[in-house]
């Protein structure tokens, strides 16, 4: 009985109130995950995993950092795990696609004529147009091999150093740049195809 009371006391004295987490942070964490994953179901799962992991580690949270920062750090780790997992699952797909899609003449390195970049005819200052382009871009991102998406997102959303991304995803520097190049070529071609 004495133990029971002690335990309750400990819970109450923690620096965090998990019952308020969803209301306070769920939307924020979901947006954070969405911006890096671009997949609603996966983002939802990651938010849930984050809260559950947070509960497990509640003892370790000492209120030194803000609750939001602390939960975001947990989510970041979950996202990194997801990137790694997705990358290793997709190794076969990449080599298959690489042979299919090329945009240049094998001999000269010239653009093949059907793949010439053409102007989008987009007003960059028009927020509505940019938003529309963003929606198409998301569809194009979803078609990328997982490893490519991971590399691209880690580089641009989190502005990580290339070396760090290579270590995380077990890539050589040469491979990293090939992927960055191929990703952009594919995204650009996909936008050109679907814009207008």
């Amino acid at each position: 009985m004495q133990n029971e009371t002690d335990k309750e006391y400990t819970v109450k004295s923690l620096h965090s109130d998990p019952l308020s987490w969803v209301e306070k942070y769920a939307d924020y964490l979901y947006g954070f995950a969405m911006s890096r994953i671009r997949d609603e179901d996966v983002a939802k799962d990651l938010v849930q995993d984050t809260f559950l992991a947070g509960l497990q580690r509640l003892d370790g949270f000492e209120g030194n950092s803000k609750e939001k920062t602390w939960l975001t750090a947990i989510l970041k780790n979950k996202i990194a795990d997801f990137y790694r997992k997705r990358s290793s699952n997709n190794l076969k797909v990449i080599s298959a696609e690489e042979t299919v899609q090329d945009f240049f003449d094998a001999e000269s390195g010239h653009w093949t004529e059907k793949d010439y970049p053409r102007a989008f005819g987009l007003e960059v200052d028009n927020p509505l147009m940019v938003k529309e382009l963003g929606a198409i871009l998301n569809d194009c991102l979803a078609k990328l091999p997982g490893l490519w998406f991971s590399v691209f997102s880690m580089k641009h959303m989190d502005d990580l150093a290339s070396e760090l991304i290579c270590t995380e995803l077990k890539l050589s520097t040469a491979n990293f740049w090939v992927i960055m190049h191929r990703t952009k070529l594919n995204l650009r071609a996909c936008l050109q195809k679907n814009w207008n």
Binding site: A43, V47, V130, L137, M157
Partner: peptide, 15 residues
């Protein structure tokens, strides 16, 4: 493309 990718609005997404 980089600009549009990074400019993704987190706030547009609500659970």
């Amino acid at each position: 493309i980089n600009k549009v990718f990074v400019g993704f609005e987190n706030n547009d997404f609500k659970l």
